[in-house]
Every structure is written in C-alpha cells, then in structure tokens.
Design a protein around this nucleic acid. Sequence first.
DNA 1: CCTACATTGTAATCAGTGTATACATTGGAG
DNA 2: CTCCAATGTATACACTGATTACAATGTAGG
Lengths: 197, 197
Amino acid sequence: MKNRPYHHGDLPAALLARAEQTLREKGSGALSLRELAREIGVSPAAPNRHFKTKQALLDALALTGFERLAETLAASQEGVGAAFAARMDAAARAYVGFAVANAALLDLMFSVKHSPEASEALGAAAQQWSEQLLELIGDGQRRGEVREGQLERVALPVFAALHGYAGLAVSGMLPAEVTEHGLDDLIASILRSCAPQ
Amino acid sequence: MKNRPYHHGDLPAALLARAEQTLREKGSGALSLRELAREIGVSPAAPNRHFKTKQALLDALALTGFERLAETLAASQEGVGAAFAARMDAAARAYVGFAVANAALLDLMFSVKHSPEASEALGAAAQQWSEQLLELIGDGQRRGEVREGQLERVALPVFAALHGYAGLAVSGMLPAEVTEHGLDDLIASILRSCAPQ
DNA sequence: CCTACATTGTAATCAGTGTATACATTGGAG
DNA sequence: CTCCAATGTATACACTGATTACAATGTAGG
C-alpha cells in the first residue's frame, strides 16, 4: 500500500543530493537535518545512522565538492594546448567558474571548522586538488615558460590569487561590471608574476 | 543589594565585546544569543532590544571588524617610507596578520549571508577599506613604481592575492612551515606583477 | 529453507536555540 | 514632577541536533 518501503534504498546518497540542492538554493545556514529527513520522507533520526552528526554531513558534502572540483579542473585541460598560458587560463576560468556556481559549497570546503578525523580525508582531497595545479605549473617550468624556483613556493601565490578572486566574487565584493574584465586581469597578472627571469 | 541594576548601562557594547571573545575562542558557529545574555547576566530576550536578529549582531560584529582592519592597515603605514615596495610589504603583512589573528571574524566579514539593509553599511565599510589599498597603489603609479592602467583593474589582482592568502592561511590549508616563507613569496609575487613595463 | 544477527528506520524524548509578545522597571525631557 | 520612551523581564512557541529504546528488514551460515 505504502509506496515507500521501510528501507529507503540509498539514504546517504539521497541526503547528500538533497542537502546540496538546499545548500545551493538557501545557503549553508539554512541546512537542517530534520527538514532534510522530512523532504526525503524518513524519520528525523534516520540521518543519524549515516551521519553521526550534522558536521559529518557537511564534511561529506565538502568532500564531494572537492571531487567535483577536481573533475572540473581536469576537464578544463582537455582540448587546450600544451602552452602554459593557455592551460593556466583554462584552469583559472574553471576554478572561478566552479566557485561562483557553487558558492555555498566552496564556503563549506574551505570552512575552518572540520571534525578532526574528517579533516584527514578532506585534507587529502584538498591536497589532491592542489596537486593538479602544481603539476600544471611544474610543466610550465619544464617548458621554460614559468620562472624557476621550488615548485610549492612558485605555486602558492598563484593559489592565493585564484582562491582570493573566487572568494571576493562569491562574497559579492565585486560589482557586476568588474567581474567581467576582472578575471582577464587576474589571469594576466598571474602569468606576469609567473613569467621567467 | 543586587549589584546589577535593572539597566545594564551599555548592553550593546557588552554584547559585542563578549560576542567577539567567544567568537575568537570557540568559533562563529558556537555563538548563541542566549548564552551571551547568560554570561552578561541579562534575560534571554534582552539582546533583542539592540539586535533584532542574530544576523544583526553578526553584521554589527563584522562592521567593527572592518573598522579595526582599517585602523590596522592605516597603522601599518606609519614609519614606513614612501617607496611602494615598502608600503605594500607593510600593508600585506598587516592584512594577513589581522586575518590569522581574527580568523573567525574575517570569515564573518566576508560571509555571503548579510541582511540586505546591513549590507549597505557593510558594503561601505568594505569599500572604505579597499580605498586604502587603492590609494596605496595609486601612489605607486604616480611614483612610477607601479605599472599603468585603470586603478581598479591594477588593484584587483592584488586584492585577490592578499585575500586568498589570508583565506588559505585561516582555513589551515597552509602547513606551518609554508606560512613562514609563504608571505615573503606572496609579496614578491605581488610586486612582480605590479612592476611597470 | 530458515534462523540468528547486523543494518537501517521509527518513536519518543531532552536540552538548547532564535524570536515574538505582553508586562515591569527605569531614567530623562518637558 | 509627571509622563513617556527606552530598556530589561517573563513567558511562550516553534524549531533544531542529538540520544535512546524499539521495530522492521535484509543477509549470511547452518
């Protein structure tokens, strides 16, 4: 009679999906486990089985965010040539695009408060992402299109510029007319600061 | 008999002060109006008189943050010469220093969620802060130590780099040993990307 | 096939929160 | 000195996250 069986089938996935949807629509502050359970149609305590605490749900959400960011970044490199400038341009647009398209998610990913154990998995995810950029820059160095120096130390300012621009854009600190040419200027600035010699 | 009079004297200030303290100690998530009232010794509904909503309290907190950031930034310019490199160096260290010393506050300041009316005052505060950096860079241009171009467009990448580095440091994405030389590298990168010609 | 058991979901409950409303106390302007 | 606006209190409501004991379900091992 009841179309909803006792067991949901895949509650964790449903929770994450729904959570990301309301995250996108209403922001991270308006995320309630109970409401999530209500929308999905399970009891208020059901999520507890899969996410011991609300923070655990948020951490899991952040983790999926890092995975998707990594995919987005990887996809941005396809079809682009081998030239450093082109690759960096594509990566920058991909990163900033992901950021503004998933503002609340990005906030979560780089939030200060993470459960100590989850920070291990999250740290790994974040590191994996950073390694994509490191490889990009390392390639640039080998091609002689990026200044020499310890890779991490060359890359850090690039990280900072990208992350900062994304943060500013997400926070609404950039007037709409600025966002237009802003990214172009940023990329140019990054390339300038990376230039050899 | 009771040493606490009916009227507190300056509840708003007490609230803000206490709020900032717990913000620094326990993070922005663990900020409860009721607990604040409890600690100060007033009724749970008392804060409502001065901050209609919790978000209003957070906005006010963010506003004081911008004011203090402006002071910090201004103070960093005293005793430094007129050379652009020195001024930018001082400003960058001041900004990042403020950020790591007030991590949770900075999160609040650049948080996405602001009450629409408060965003006016906040926007003004943020803009005032940005104008300090704009003036710094404009001076550099006039001295011929910074590349030419529309001021805002030259400044934006600098903003992004500073803000991003602060964000990364605050999020704990930077290993401790990196933070040491990281800021030096960042400043060098900024100066490089600002250089004329 | 069927039974023990671990998974998963439910029901009920607790402490705590933000907010609103009606009421009490106070201090200061006219 | 009086009246009134400002400030603080008491109480209540609708939430939330989390815990606990219990019920339904799938799934290996005999």
